[in-house]
Write a protein that binds this DNA or RNA. Sequence first.
DNA 1: CTAGGGTTAG
Length: 451
Amino acid sequence: MNCTRIGLRYYYSTSPFNQRTLLFKNAPKVDDALQVFDEMLQRQPPPSIFQFTQLISVIVKMKQYSTALKLFKQMRLMGVPVSIPTMNISINCYCRLNQVAYGFALLATLFKQGFSPSLATYSTLIHGLVLADRVFEAVELFKKLLRDKLCDPDQVMYGTVINGLCKVGHTSKAIELLTFMESGSCKPCVEQYSVVIDSLCKDKMVDHALELFAKMTGKGVLADVITYNSLIHGLCNFGRETEAAKMLRNMEEEGVSPTVATFNILVNSFCKQGSVKDAELAVQEMVRRGLCPNVITYSALIDGYCLRGEIDEAEKVLNGMTEKDLAPNIITYNSLINGYCKKKQIDKARHLFQEIQDKGLIPDVITYNSMLQGLFESGNPAAARELFNEMQAKGQAPNIYTYRILLHGMCKNSQCSDALALFRSVESKELMVVTNAGSLTWLWICLTNFY
DNA sequence: CTAGGGTTAG
């Protein structure tokens, strides 16, 4: 696919230009959409704001939020008028870029220009606060909107708040809000139920999730693939594979087809059980059904092989995905790096660690944790401590596992006084506030065992 | 199918 073809399709197609043209038909790249944008800017008379918005929403769906914002800026400079939808998309972009403050700044601009925010504007901002882990403020904003009667919340807005509550572990509060919806005129639909069902599964309350699922379907709300995915995931996670299989059959009987995500849940579950062969069969089945394995599929397989110590097989999968033009990401590589470290192949781990950075990937705290453990276990505490400094210099905050690895490594290498000093510094950083009592106890046990 | 919400990997 090249840009010209999209451009031509845009100019000469008799059917109206739409998202699917750009998004799905020819799987074009962002550059193609940008080319269309440039052509649109040069057209006389200029296309409507509607058409610009359509195109930019394609770019947003490709998760190119900064690009989308740049295009809006360019449009403004070219004198294309703004509208509530364009403002909403911009606010959403800022929120996705973790800059919810800019989102609120845009809300102020919007008021100044005499626009009235829509429900979508407010829902986007509430979601932005949730994305920024500011759920308390999200709930406060929602309450303020209700209190001041600034809007009449719809299912999406309720759902956004319910999701926020679930995200911070307040599933029971989320259930209260869901029940409130049931009692009112804005009845919950499958999205709101699914959020809570998923949260219950993650809270290890799979039976409660199943009960809510039964209640939902009892009210005539049909489960969709995401509802089923959450339940299958929950059942698999707690060793209830037979029920998961039953759920899978049930969903197909209901006419809901499994997606890549559904199969990925199965692939991952097989891998965690150590039966990568079954995982491979699941991948074959998804391909047979015309579904295309994605980065998550291959990463799960790689991790599965690494867990079994079959690094060669993991490397084969990595090569296979690269051949299919799928770019491995940091999660993919973390499995391999961890696999090398666990097999005491620290040189291979270090090499890969360097290689991915040369490719422009940013190691995260999990990468560093694997490397640190590998370095200690290969008898190189000095390199480990150097890497610990490096990770902080590069802005990767150590977590409780990092400290656990360091304390353990130092103690084992007769550096107990250093370990104690490190522990004191952890204490002074008040890391315990963000950890839990269990981890803190572990630190003490680790120290007292070796001191 | 011009704007906002829910599922999958380390």
